[in-house]
Design a protein around this nucleic acid. Sequence first.
DNA 1: ATGTCATCATGCTGATGA
Length: 279
Amino acid sequence: MRIATWNVNSIRTRVGRVVDFLVREDVDVLAMQEVKCKPEQFPAEAFDEAGYELAIHGLNQWNGVAIASRSPILDVETEFPGMPGFLKSHDGPDLPKEARAIGATVDGVRVWSLYVPNGRSLDDPHYAYKLDWLAALTEYTRTETSSRPEVPFALMGDFNIAPLDEDNGDPAVVPGASTHVSPPEREAFFALENAGVTDVVRPLVPAGYTYWDYKQLKFPRNEGMRIDFVLGSAAFAEQVTDAVIHRNERKGDAPSDHVPVLVELALSEDDDDLPMIFG
DNA sequence: ATGTCATCATGCTGATGA
Protein backbone atom coordinates (compact mmCIF):
# COMPACT_ATOMS: atom_id res chain seq x y z
CA MET A 1 0.00 0.00 0.00
CA ARG A 2 1.22 3.48 -0.90
CA ILE A 3 -0.28 6.11 1.39
CA ALA A 4 0.35 9.87 1.44
CA THR A 5 -0.61 13.06 3.22
CA TRP A 6 -0.85 16.51 1.60
CA ASN A 7 -2.10 19.90 2.70
CA VAL A 8 -3.47 20.90 -0.71
CA ASN A 9 -4.54 24.48 0.15
CA SER A 10 -7.82 24.37 -1.80
CA ILE A 11 -8.70 21.21 -3.70
CA ARG A 12 -10.73 23.21 -6.22
CA THR A 13 -7.60 25.16 -7.20
CA ARG A 14 -5.30 22.13 -7.06
CA VAL A 15 -7.37 19.16 -8.31
CA GLY A 16 -5.38 18.63 -11.52
CA ARG A 17 -2.09 18.63 -9.69
CA VAL A 18 -3.35 16.33 -6.96
CA VAL A 19 -4.86 13.70 -9.26
CA ASP A 20 -1.77 13.80 -11.50
CA PHE A 21 0.36 13.09 -8.45
CA LEU A 22 -1.83 10.18 -7.34
CA VAL A 23 -1.66 8.52 -10.73
CA ARG A 24 2.03 9.24 -11.37
CA GLU A 25 3.11 7.98 -7.95
CA ASP A 26 0.68 5.05 -7.86
CA VAL A 27 -0.81 6.27 -4.58
CA ASP A 28 -3.50 4.07 -3.00
CA VAL A 29 -4.63 6.38 -0.19
CA LEU A 30 -4.29 10.16 0.17
CA ALA A 31 -5.08 12.14 3.33
CA MET A 32 -5.78 15.75 2.34
CA GLN A 33 -5.94 18.88 4.50
CA GLU A 34 -7.21 22.39 3.80
CA VAL A 35 -9.52 21.29 1.02
CA LYS A 36 -11.34 24.58 1.72
CA CYS A 37 -14.79 23.55 0.54
CA LYS A 38 -17.98 21.72 1.38
CA PRO A 39 -18.49 18.15 0.11
CA GLU A 40 -20.87 19.32 -2.62
CA GLN A 41 -18.18 21.70 -3.91
CA PHE A 42 -15.43 19.05 -3.95
CA PRO A 43 -14.24 18.12 -7.49
CA ALA A 44 -15.15 14.46 -6.98
CA GLU A 45 -15.45 13.59 -10.65
CA ALA A 46 -11.72 13.88 -11.33
CA PHE A 47 -11.04 11.48 -8.46
CA ASP A 48 -13.74 9.10 -9.62
CA GLU A 49 -12.35 9.01 -13.15
CA ALA A 50 -8.89 8.22 -11.74
CA GLY A 51 -10.35 5.34 -9.71
CA TYR A 52 -10.60 6.89 -6.24
CA GLU A 53 -13.49 7.14 -3.84
CA LEU A 54 -13.69 9.94 -1.31
CA ALA A 55 -14.63 10.72 2.26
CA ILE A 56 -14.93 14.48 2.80
CA HIS A 57 -15.45 16.65 5.88
CA GLY A 58 -15.81 20.34 5.03
CA LEU A 59 -18.15 22.94 6.52
CA ASN A 60 -17.17 26.20 4.77
CA GLN A 61 -14.18 27.84 3.07
CA TRP A 62 -11.90 27.21 6.04
CA ASN A 63 -10.01 24.04 6.92
CA GLY A 64 -11.65 20.90 5.53
CA VAL A 65 -10.13 17.41 5.36
CA ALA A 66 -10.66 14.43 3.08
CA ILE A 67 -9.43 10.94 2.26
CA ALA A 68 -9.17 9.53 -1.28
CA SER A 69 -8.74 5.79 -1.72
CA ARG A 70 -8.67 3.13 -4.41
CA SER A 71 -10.08 0.62 -1.91
CA PRO A 72 -13.40 1.04 -0.09
CA ILE A 73 -13.47 3.66 2.66
CA LEU A 74 -15.14 2.27 5.80
CA ASP A 75 -16.23 3.51 9.23
CA VAL A 76 -15.81 7.26 8.61
CA GLU A 77 -15.63 9.58 11.64
CA THR A 78 -15.46 13.38 11.39
CA GLU A 79 -13.97 14.01 14.80
CA PHE A 80 -11.98 12.00 17.33
CA PRO A 81 -13.37 11.44 20.84
CA GLY A 82 -12.80 14.50 23.04
CA MET A 83 -11.88 16.78 20.12
CA PRO A 84 -12.48 20.37 21.22
CA GLY A 85 -14.09 23.17 19.20
CA PHE A 86 -12.71 26.69 18.93
CA LEU A 87 -14.63 29.08 21.14
CA LYS A 88 -14.75 31.83 18.52
CA SER A 89 -16.20 29.46 15.97
CA HIS A 90 -19.34 28.60 17.90
CA ASP A 91 -21.49 29.92 20.70
CA GLY A 92 -22.43 26.68 22.29
CA PRO A 93 -21.71 23.01 22.53
CA ASP A 94 -24.32 22.02 19.95
CA LEU A 95 -22.80 23.95 17.07
CA PRO A 96 -20.36 22.17 14.76
CA LYS A 97 -16.65 22.00 15.48
CA GLU A 98 -14.13 23.00 12.85
CA ALA A 99 -13.49 20.46 10.07
CA ARG A 100 -9.98 19.40 11.05
CA ALA A 101 -10.18 15.61 11.35
CA ILE A 102 -11.53 12.70 9.37
CA GLY A 103 -10.84 9.08 10.17
CA ALA A 104 -11.56 5.99 8.10
CA THR A 105 -10.55 2.37 7.69
CA VAL A 106 -8.98 1.36 4.38
CA ASP A 107 -7.64 -2.16 3.75
CA GLY A 108 -7.61 -2.74 7.48
CA VAL A 109 -5.63 0.41 8.28
CA ARG A 110 -7.18 3.07 10.52
CA VAL A 111 -6.17 6.36 8.93
CA TRP A 112 -6.70 9.91 10.21
CA SER A 113 -6.29 13.02 8.06
CA LEU A 114 -5.58 15.85 10.53
CA TYR A 115 -5.24 19.60 10.23
CA VAL A 116 -3.95 20.75 13.60
CA PRO A 117 -4.98 24.33 14.53
CA ASN A 118 -2.37 26.92 13.56
CA GLY A 119 -2.28 28.79 16.88
CA ARG A 120 -1.93 32.21 15.18
CA SER A 121 0.22 33.74 17.97
CA LEU A 122 1.39 32.74 21.42
CA ASP A 123 -1.15 35.02 23.14
CA ASP A 124 -4.11 34.17 20.88
CA PRO A 125 -6.97 31.97 22.12
CA HIS A 126 -6.26 29.85 19.05
CA TYR A 127 -2.94 28.85 20.62
CA ALA A 128 -4.61 27.43 23.73
CA TYR A 129 -7.10 25.71 21.45
CA LYS A 130 -4.19 24.15 19.53
CA LEU A 131 -2.70 22.72 22.73
CA ASP A 132 -6.10 21.46 23.93
CA TRP A 133 -6.74 19.86 20.54
CA LEU A 134 -3.38 18.06 20.66
CA ALA A 135 -3.95 16.90 24.25
CA ALA A 136 -7.29 15.37 23.25
CA LEU A 137 -5.67 13.74 20.21
CA THR A 138 -2.98 12.29 22.47
CA GLU A 139 -5.54 10.74 24.81
CA TYR A 140 -7.48 9.30 21.89
CA THR A 141 -4.26 7.89 20.40
CA ARG A 142 -3.26 6.30 23.70
CA THR A 143 -6.68 4.65 24.04
CA GLU A 144 -6.82 3.49 20.45
CA THR A 145 -3.31 2.05 20.18
CA SER A 146 -3.55 0.24 23.52
CA SER A 147 -7.04 -1.17 23.05
CA ARG A 148 -6.54 -2.37 19.47
CA PRO A 149 -2.76 -2.75 19.04
CA GLU A 150 -3.18 -5.21 16.19
CA VAL A 151 -4.91 -2.62 13.96
CA PRO A 152 -2.39 -0.53 11.96
CA PHE A 153 -3.18 3.06 12.98
CA ALA A 154 -1.83 6.27 11.48
CA LEU A 155 -2.15 10.00 12.17
CA MET A 156 -1.35 11.84 8.96
CA GLY A 157 -1.43 15.53 8.27
CA ASP A 158 -0.36 19.08 8.88
CA PHE A 159 0.61 19.28 12.55
CA ASN A 160 1.65 22.96 12.41
CA ILE A 161 4.61 22.14 14.69
CA ALA A 162 8.31 21.94 13.83
CA PRO A 163 9.35 19.50 16.56
CA LEU A 164 13.15 19.85 16.20
CA ASP A 165 15.29 22.93 15.67
CA GLU A 166 16.43 21.49 12.33
CA ASP A 167 12.78 21.36 11.21
CA ASN A 168 12.67 25.15 11.09
CA GLY A 169 14.58 26.82 8.27
CA ASP A 170 12.58 30.04 8.31
CA PRO A 171 14.42 32.89 10.04
CA ALA A 172 11.08 34.68 10.51
CA VAL A 173 9.97 31.87 12.83
CA VAL A 174 11.72 32.74 16.07
CA PRO A 175 11.93 30.44 19.10
CA GLY A 176 10.36 32.23 22.04
CA ALA A 177 8.23 34.50 19.86
CA SER A 178 6.55 32.34 17.23
CA THR A 179 4.08 29.52 17.11
CA HIS A 180 5.13 26.16 15.62
CA VAL A 181 8.41 26.09 17.60
CA SER A 182 7.38 26.97 21.16
CA PRO A 183 8.24 24.51 23.93
CA PRO A 184 4.57 23.76 24.80
CA GLU A 185 3.80 22.89 21.16
CA ARG A 186 6.90 20.72 20.90
CA GLU A 187 6.05 19.02 24.20
CA ALA A 188 2.54 18.35 22.89
CA PHE A 189 4.02 16.73 19.79
CA PHE A 190 6.45 14.61 21.84
CA ALA A 191 3.58 13.58 24.15
CA LEU A 192 1.72 12.36 21.10
CA GLU A 193 4.78 10.33 20.07
CA ASN A 194 4.80 8.82 23.57
CA ALA A 195 1.14 7.79 23.28
CA GLY A 196 1.69 4.87 20.92
CA VAL A 197 2.76 6.32 17.57
CA THR A 198 6.11 7.17 15.98
CA ASP A 199 7.23 9.33 13.07
CA VAL A 200 7.71 6.72 10.35
CA VAL A 201 9.23 9.16 7.83
CA ARG A 202 12.12 10.71 9.73
CA PRO A 203 14.17 7.50 10.04
CA LEU A 204 14.00 7.11 6.24
CA VAL A 205 14.16 10.82 5.34
CA PRO A 206 16.26 12.49 8.04
CA ALA A 207 16.38 15.95 6.44
CA GLY A 208 14.03 18.16 4.47
CA TYR A 209 11.06 20.47 4.81
CA THR A 210 7.43 19.88 3.86
CA TYR A 211 6.22 23.51 3.74
CA TRP A 212 7.53 26.82 2.42
CA ASP A 213 5.57 30.06 2.87
CA TYR A 214 4.47 31.69 -0.39
CA LYS A 215 5.98 35.00 0.71
CA GLN A 216 9.49 36.36 0.45
CA LEU A 217 10.99 33.74 -1.88
CA LYS A 218 10.92 31.19 0.93
CA PHE A 219 11.07 28.24 -1.47
CA PRO A 220 13.96 29.46 -3.66
CA ARG A 221 15.83 30.31 -0.45
CA ASN A 222 14.83 26.94 1.02
CA GLU A 223 13.56 28.64 4.16
CA GLY A 224 10.92 26.01 4.87
CA MET A 225 9.58 24.02 7.77
CA ARG A 226 8.98 20.35 8.43
CA ILE A 227 5.46 20.34 9.84
CA ASP A 228 3.67 17.52 7.94
CA PHE A 229 4.03 14.07 9.44
CA VAL A 230 2.94 10.46 9.34
CA LEU A 231 2.77 9.04 12.86
CA GLY A 232 2.11 5.31 12.94
CA SER A 233 1.38 2.71 15.61
CA ALA A 234 3.75 -0.23 16.00
CA ALA A 235 1.53 -2.36 13.75
CA PHE A 236 1.71 0.36 11.09
CA ALA A 237 5.38 1.28 11.51
CA GLU A 238 6.58 -2.30 11.18
CA GLN A 239 5.05 -2.44 7.69
CA VAL A 240 6.80 0.70 6.40
CA THR A 241 9.34 -0.01 3.66
CA ASP A 242 9.94 3.46 2.18
CA ALA A 243 9.13 7.15 2.58
CA VAL A 244 9.52 10.18 0.31
CA ILE A 245 8.95 13.92 0.76
CA HIS A 246 7.92 15.08 -2.72
CA ARG A 247 9.74 18.41 -2.73
CA ASN A 248 9.23 18.87 -6.47
CA GLU A 249 5.51 19.41 -5.87
CA ARG A 250 6.38 22.86 -4.52
CA LYS A 251 7.63 23.80 -8.03
CA GLY A 252 5.80 24.76 -11.21
CA ASP A 253 2.47 26.45 -11.73
CA ALA A 254 0.13 27.06 -8.83
CA PRO A 255 1.68 24.79 -6.21
CA SER A 256 0.33 24.31 -2.71
CA ASP A 257 2.60 25.77 -0.05
CA HIS A 258 2.94 22.19 1.30
CA VAL A 259 4.27 19.09 -0.49
CA PRO A 260 3.04 15.50 -0.21
CA VAL A 261 4.68 13.01 2.13
CA LEU A 262 4.40 9.44 0.84
CA VAL A 263 4.90 6.18 2.75
CA GLU A 264 5.04 2.68 1.30
CA LEU A 265 3.79 -0.26 3.35
CA ALA A 266 4.52 -3.94 2.79
CA LEU A 267 0.88 -4.54 3.67
CA SER A 268 -0.97 -6.12 0.76
CA GLU A 269 -4.06 -4.24 -0.34
CA ASP A 270 -6.55 -6.78 -1.59
CA ASP A 271 -6.47 -9.52 -4.19
CA ASP A 272 -7.93 -7.50 -7.05
CA ASP A 273 -4.59 -6.91 -8.75
CA LEU A 274 -3.28 -10.43 -8.34
CA PRO A 275 -3.62 -13.20 -10.93
CA MET A 276 -6.48 -15.66 -10.40
CA ILE A 277 -4.39 -18.72 -9.66
CA PHE A 278 -7.25 -20.77 -8.29
CA GLY A 279 -9.78 -19.79 -10.90
C1' DA B 1 7.72 45.93 1.78
C1' DT B 2 2.79 43.30 5.61
C1' DG B 3 6.87 41.23 -0.49
C1' DT B 4 1.75 35.46 -1.50
C1' DC B 5 -2.30 32.95 -2.00
C1' DA B 6 -7.27 31.45 -1.50
C1' DT B 7 -11.93 32.53 -0.24
C1' DC B 8 -16.09 35.13 0.60
C1' DA B 9 -18.94 39.15 0.86
C1' DT B 10 -21.08 44.70 3.04
C1' DG B 11 -18.69 41.81 -4.28
C1' DC B 12 -14.41 43.90 -8.73
C1' DT B 13 -11.61 45.65 -3.25
C1' DG B 14 -11.12 44.57 1.47
C1' DA B 15 -11.27 41.36 5.31
C1' DT B 16 -9.84 36.93 7.07
C1' DG B 17 -6.80 33.13 7.66
C1' DA B 18 -2.57 30.94 6.79
